[in-house]
């Protein structure tokens, strides 16, 4: 404990800001993947699986083609395919969404394991110098500026893109025709139907975009956040994304803020490990934080709801 206090300024410093964002980015993508379907009232439990398939595809395609960009594109397509399997099952064949979502997660885990063995003849993980990573953006003029340089320089391309995506989805949900229809479909499908909106078509579209984002999440994880594929490398980030989506009420900006919290606990944990905290405690920290934050946000929502419902205070 003393060691931690003595090194307080080494743990909490400027680089922690980027470390937090860096840990949070894969979860942000995952959370956005879950948020878009949630707007259509579909709980995308399969986020984890979509992401894992995306991660594997990205590494494979980048390795064989030598292009990180093709890797990302292929990952997004693979994510969309997986997502469409779930969509068809859920929308066309009435699958319970949690059940088929867990099925998708299992499938992703198994098939990536299978393919790593079948394609690369390796077990557990695959890495190679031939895998082209997503480049980092170096802004030369920032090099000389002390704090800003440390904060913003050398971000991975997809990290910048995460910010663009948050803003884009916020705009899409709340300002465009498609977003209005999406929300109507999620909140009261019958009303949307009578307004002439093809409800299932909107749901499929939401699932498709969700798959693309989920695939991108995986690509970022395996080509940006790291440069390799490891069995089950998503390590429940998909579920953390779903938790963050609940926290933010499927609103992209609030959802992303929730992810930063998880990223923060992750990067703090990594630093604490250097000072004698057992690794298991460090590793479990983001999970505990996620459960705690999720619970607190639901309790807060509930008590806000109670307050709004109360007859004792005058309304409006």
């Amino acid at each position: 404990m003393n060691a931690i206090l003595e090194n307080f300024d080494k743990i909490f410093n400027v680089s922690l800001v980027y470390a937090t964002f860096r840990s949070a980015t894969p979860i942000i993508f995952a959370a956005l993947c879950a948020a878009i379907t949630q707007q259509a009232n579909i709980l995308n439990i399969g986020t984890e699986g979509i992401m894992l398939v995306g991660a594997f595809t990205a590494v494979t395609v980048s390795y064989f083609s030598g292009s990180w960009f093709l890797g990302i594109v292929a990952a997004m397509i693979a994510g969309a395919i997986i997502s469409m399997i779930m969509a068809v099952g859920h929308i066309r064949y009435n699958s319970e969404i949690c059940a088929i979502g867990m099925g998708i997660n299992m499938l992703a885990l198994a098939i990536t394991k299978f393919l790593v063995k079948a394609i690369f003849n390796s077990t557990g993980s695959f890495s190679s110098p031939d895998i082209k990573a997503i480049p980092r953006v170096n802004l030369a003029f920032l090099d000389s500026i002390p704090v800003l340089g440390e904060l913003f320089n050398d971000w991975c391309v997809t990290e910048w893109f995460a910010i663009i995506l948050i803003i884009f989805l916020q705009f899409l949900f709340y300002k465009t025709v498609w977003g209005l229809r999406l929300r109507a479909v999620g909140q009261f499908p019958e009303a949307a139907k009578t307004a002439g909106i093809r409800v299932n078509s909107v749901k499929y579209q939401a699932m498709l975009i969700s798959g693309l984002i989920g695939g991108l999440a995986g690509a970022h994880l395996s080509l940006g956040y790291s440069t390799q594929f490891i069995e089950n490398m998503t390590n429940n980030r998909g579920f953390m994304g779903v938790a963050a989506m609940y926290f933010g009420g499927a609103n992209p900006v609030f959802t992303a803020l929730g992810c930063l919290l998880f990223g923060f606990s992750d990067s703090i944990g990594a630093r604490l490990q250097a000072y004698g905290i057992p690794s298991q405690f460090v590793l479990m920290m983001p999970y505990i934080v996620t459960v705690a934050v999720l619970s607190i946000s639901m309790v807060a929502k509930l008590s806000a709801g109670r307050k709004r419902e109360s007859a004792l205070h005058s309304g409006n």
Partner: peptide, 27 residues
Amino acid sequence: ALRAYYGVNEVCTTILMNTVALYITSY
């Protein structure tokens, strides 16, 4: 209890708690 009293989705919490349980025993 989280689900029953506060509506916290049990799929999320149980999955995340599995990892916590694993790390506790591993420790």
